[in-house]
Design a protein around this nucleic acid. Structure first.
Lengths: 218, 218
DNA sequence: ATTTCAAGTGAGTACTCACTCATTATTGTT
DNA sequence: AACAATAATGAGTGAGTACTCACTTGAAAT
């Protein structure tokens, strides 16, 4: 997949205007790279323009402010981050026994998000760095998480608790333990120790086994 | 504990010079607060001076550059973050059966680090934000982790694996799973959802049970 | 061929940044 | 009280900041 393709894919939820000029994409690419490397506040618009091979004014033709440019990166990343839970078919896939066990569900989510993280890593870096400092982003995230991710996740867990497959802890705790176990791997694998020699498949097996044992009903 | 006290405690590993003037402490306090709120790059030295009730020049009398000020916050926090593993008595406590089970060890670490995180939260925020952008910090962290934390952790895990208490996964995986499970709680509790109504003791119980089941030998 | 117009430019603008330094205030010593 | 040494000050500095705007370009529409 070429450089432009993945970016267009990340942005495709916003297809309403659809028409991304070449320079606009170059600007986004440069901004993502530099924000990921040095952070939003430490990156100047003149540097972005230089790396994008564009005049500084061109940035402000497409994005009213520097912050608008940040949001144009961060918001699509936010939506893609929780994409599986936003899909309509998603809940059905679970309840119509496409996933017979909680483990099947976890494996599906894992693989899906693994591909996502590998593909969009720089944008995800920017997202997680800047969510700490920008309230609009944090609030958007909270809203999406509560109304989409949490609600669906809850039903899925209650489903498998009723089936007697997983332990009868509070749903919130099961969600948290599931997410931190999966996200903990991604954080270690891609953020904290990206240069360590990982055997991704083996580590996935170990982690999922650990998670299933931890949540097993005794 | 008053405001100055906790800061002095955080800094005490660096007792060689020991003499912290009142203004110097005020500057550090203000810097920690503001770096935690808006980030290092987005905070100006003039703002720090104002909040500290000090002239801007005074900052540069005590810290040669703005980055020196950052390091004066971040390095002590780095050391304190892994403090239990740096203590000489630490390994003894484990091997001389002061901790009979891996669970006892995990509980001890949990409680110790829980107090630490509660106390120094803003400094820890700054540390985790800025480690992503400053190579010196990241390298220091890696060195300390490899030579102190990892080595001791490894021996402890091998000890309990030989006792047949925990599963025979690669040590690296057991360390990672243990840390991400504990750190995952702290991240959710203090960083991502600090306003949620947590029952800390109950959640600790659930999390440790989850961890021990996940790592149990079958 | 002429008009139209969005896309692109880059020098210019007002302002902020980290850092300096001559001057003043405070403290300790005799 | 006189002096020395140190600490603190804040106006000043030049480099850099996000953003503007009068202008150019090129391609499509008439």
């Amino acid at each position: 997949m070429n450089e432009e393709q993945w970016l267009k894919e990340l942005l495709k939820f916003n297809e309403e205007d659809g028409k991304w000029s070449e320079k606009q994409i170059k600007i986004l690419e440069a901004a993502i790279e530099m924000f990921a490397e040095k952070g939003y506040a430490a990156t100047s618009t003149s540097e972005i323009a230089k790396r994008a091979g564009v005049a500084e004014g061109t940035i402000f033709r497409h994005y009213k402010t520097k912050k608008d440019l940040l949001l144009a990166i961060v918001m699509p990343t936010l939506f893609q981050s929780v994409a599986p839970f936003l899909a309509k078919e998603f809940a059905k896939e679970v309840f119509e026994n496409q996933y017979e066990h909680y483990e099947d569900f976890v494996r599906a989510v894992w693989k899906n998000r693994y591909e996502f993280v590998k593909k969009y890593l720089p944008a995800i870096r920017v997202f997680w760095q800047e969510i700490a400092f920008h309230d609009e982003i944090k609030k958007q995230f909270e809203t999406i998480f509560k109304t989409h991710v949490y609600e669906k996740f809850k039903k899925i867990i209650e489903h498998f608790q009723e089936k007697g497959e997983i332990v009868e802890l509070p749903v919130e705790s099961v969600i948290r333990l599931t997410i931190t176990t999966i996200a903990g791997f991604f954080a270690a694998r891609f953020m904290i120790m990206p240069d360590y020699e990982w055997d991704d498949d083996a580590e996935m097996e170990r982690t999922i086994q650990f998670l299933m044992n931890g949540l097993a009903k005794k």
